[in-house]
Amino acid sequence: MKKITHIAPAEADSQLLSKPIAQEGVINYPARELGLCAGFSNNQYCTTTEVYPDSSHVTEEQCNLAQVAAITGGLDYLLGREESE
Rank of each mutant, 00 (worst) to 15 (best):
M1N: 07
M1T: 11
M1I: 10
K2D: 08
K2I: 06
K3A: 14
I4N: 03
T5C: 13
T5N: 05
H6V: 11
I7V: 15
I7M: 09
P9F: 00
P9D: 13
E11I: 02
A12G: 09
A12K: 14
A12V: 07
D13L: 05
D13N: 15
D13P: 01
Q15I: 03
Q15S: 15
L16C: 04
L16T: 04
L16Y: 00
L17W: 12
L17K: 00
S18L: 11
S18W: 10
P20C: 05
A22D: 11
A22L: 14
Q23L: 09
E24Y: 00
E24P: 05
G25F: 02
I27F: 02
P30H: 07
P30M: 00
P30K: 10
A31L: 03
A31F: 04
A31P: 00
A31C: 11
R32E: 13
E33P: 01
E33S: 10
E33N: 07
L34Y: 10
G35T: 03
G35A: 00
G35I: 04
L36D: 02
L36E: 09
L36Q: 08
C37K: 12
C37L: 13
A38S: 10
A38W: 01
A38T: 01
A38M: 10
A38Y: 02
G39A: 02
G39P: 01
F40S: 06
S41A: 10
S41L: 09
S41T: 15
N43E: 12
Q44S: 08
C46W: 03
C46S: 14
C46Y: 03
C46Q: 07
T47W: 12
T47P: 00
T47A: 15
T47H: 05
T48A: 12
T49N: 03
E50D: 07
E50T: 05
E50K: 04
Y52E: 06
D54E: 11
S55H: 08
S55M: 08
H57Q: 14
V58G: 01
V58D: 02
V58R: 04
V58Y: 03
V58E: 02
T59N: 05
E60K: 12
E60H: 09
E60Y: 11
E61A: 12
E61H: 08
Q62K: 08
Q62V: 03
Q62M: 08
Q62C: 05
C63S: 14
C63Q: 01
C63V: 07
N64I: 14
N64P: 00
N64K: 13
Q67R: 06
V68Q: 11
V68C: 10
V68R: 11
V68K: 10
A69W: 00
A69V: 00
A69L: 02
A70S: 11
A70H: 07
A70F: 06
A70R: 01
A70M: 11
I71E: 02
G73F: 01
G73S: 00
G74I: 04
G74A: 05
L75M: 15
D76G: 01
Y77W: 15
L78C: 08
G80Y: 04
R81D: 02
E82V: 11
E82K: 11
E83Q: 14
S84L: 13
E85K: 14
E85M: 13
